[in-house]
Amino acid sequence: MDGADAPVPGAYVVVVEASVPLPEIAIVADAQGGFAINLPDGTFRLRAEHDGRSGEVEVAVPATDAVRVQLG
């Protein structure tokens, strides 16, 4: 989401910290600004990036809700 809480298609999402080994691939948000990663159980920090802006969120898996990352 951007500052106006609008979805950001094409934003990159990377896992920057994890309690299990996860590789350095960058996922691309779809046309609705959504993304899906089938994370194993553990704790993770996800970072979203777009046009020089970024935001991070911590996730504990299994998670019950969808995750939203706010771009600063």
Partner: peptide, 27 residues
């Protein structure tokens, strides 16, 4: 799902990359 990664040539038609860039249960 879209993603980006990096690869490199080892021959005219052969590009090596990380395994998870072409096969990943997670992504």
């Amino acid at each position: 799902t879209g993603a980006i990664g990096t690869g490199w040539f080892i021959g005219p038609r052969t590009v090596v990359t990380a395994g998870h860039c072409v096969f990943s249960q997670t992504f």
